[in-house]
Structures are given as C-alpha cells and as structure tokens.
C-alpha cells in the first residue's frame, strides 16, 4: 500500500527526523519526497531508521558526491527542500556556503538543502558524524546561515535608525545562541579527548 502525507517542517530538522522515525514505527517506509509532503509504502514495523542532514552549504558536485558515498555505504538517500520556492530559474545567494555553492540555483542545492538518510535499524544510534572534530565542523556549517540571518537585519536597522527591523532577527539570534552552546560543549570535550 502507498500513501502520500502532506507535511512541511521548514528548517526543523530534528522534528522532521523524529516524525520520519515515528512513521517507520507505524510501518511506513519513505519512498519519495515532494515540496510539501512525503510518499510512503507499508513496511515491516520499525525496520528503517532515518536521519536528516543539512547539505545546503555544499556545491552541486559536493552534495551529489556525498549522497553517492552514503548510497555506497548501504544507505538510501532523498534530497528534500527546506524552504518553499516554486519559482523556476531562481537564484539565491548563500554567502555561508562552500566554494561552488554560494549562488544556489535549481541546478545546485536550491530546494535540495536537506538530505534524508535511511538505514536498516540495527540497534545502534544512527549518527553520521562521530568524532568531536567532525561534529564541530558540521555544527559550524549549521550555525553560519543563522549568523547571516541574524546580522542582515542590522543593515536596515542602522540605515533607518529603527529598531523594529531587529524583531525578525530575534529568532535567528536565538538559533545562533543554541548552536554556540553546542559548539562550546564539543570544544570542552576536545580539550581532553579527540
């Protein structure tokens, strides 16, 4: 049996991951994604496990080669959009991205900012990043877009001397703070252990 579920998580990667795993616990395996939804087919209850990773900072080649590598490791991967962009031929400037990914278009990682990775559940935690050094690097790619969103509102605020422009920046500031706490924690661990 197949079904499509309308659901949109925007940038809430953890909620999306939890929801996909709950679907698997109810016997639904992901078969595809659409802009606003997910396609499933029925499967053995809890057979699969999901994790969601941000790849919106990568170039087209970077994201594809990473996805291919994960497939070679025996996982199934699905690209998923984070934002809603129905336009064709649109270009988004991402100053936080790696070389080759700064100008995101439909040919690069625009609308493919997330990677949903599936493995057969084996009782061990599903972690793609396992060393402190690498978790730190991944956290930094996650915090960078938030720093930009937080800072960009200061431009009109300063130009117009109107603090109301800083209101939309508040959630991003909170996002940055959350990641900075996580980064500090990893750095503390790294002082003694790798």
């Amino acid at each position: 049996m197949k079904k499509t579920v309308k659901r949109y998580f925007a940038g809430a990667m953890n909620s999306q991951q939890k929801w996909l795993n709950k679907m698997s616990d109810r016997g639904w395996r992901l078969t595809g994604t659409t802009i606003m939804g997910y396609e499933f087919e029925d499967c053995e209850i809890g057979k699969y496990e999901y994790t969601v990773e941000y790849v919106g900072n990568k170039s087209k080649e970077g994201a594809e080669s990473y996805a291919k590598f994960l497939e070679d490791c025996g996982y199934r991967v699905f690209f998923k959009n984070m934002n809603l962009n129905y336009n064709v031929g649109k270009t988004v400037y991402k100053p936080w991205a790696e070389k080759g990914g700064k100008l995101a278009t439909n040919d690069t990682t625009l609308n493919k900012e997330l990677l949903i990775v599936e493995k057969v559940r084996d009782g061990r935690p599903f972690e793609l990043h396992t060393t402190a050094e690498d978790r730190l690097a991944y956290m930094k790619t996650l915090v960078r877009p938030w720093i930009w969103f937080a800072v960009i509102w200061f431009v009109p605020a300063i130009l117009t001397r109107s603090w109301t422009f800083l209101i939309p920046s508040a959630p991003a500031v909170i996002g940055v703070a959350v990641y900075l706490v996580k980064i500090a924690k990893i750095k503390r661990e790294m002082r003694i252990k790798e």
């Binding site: 070679d72 490791c73 972690e127 060393t131």
Partner: peptide, 26 residues
C-alpha cells in the same frame, strides 16, 4: 571502498570505534 573501511575499523577495534559515514567522507 568507504563501507569496507568502516567495517575494517569496527572489526579491528571489536566495535569500540564506530565511524559515521559523514565523518569518514570528510
């Protein structure tokens, strides 16, 4: 290949060290 590297490390360390695919890729 990548997956075989993961298996090698897990076998040699008797499962003490497991390597995430993302970490291995990097």
């Amino acid at each position: 290949h990548g997956y075989a590297v993961m298996q090698f490390i897990e076998a040699e360390t008797a499962g003490r060290l497991t390597l995430g695919a993302g970490t291995l890729y990097g």
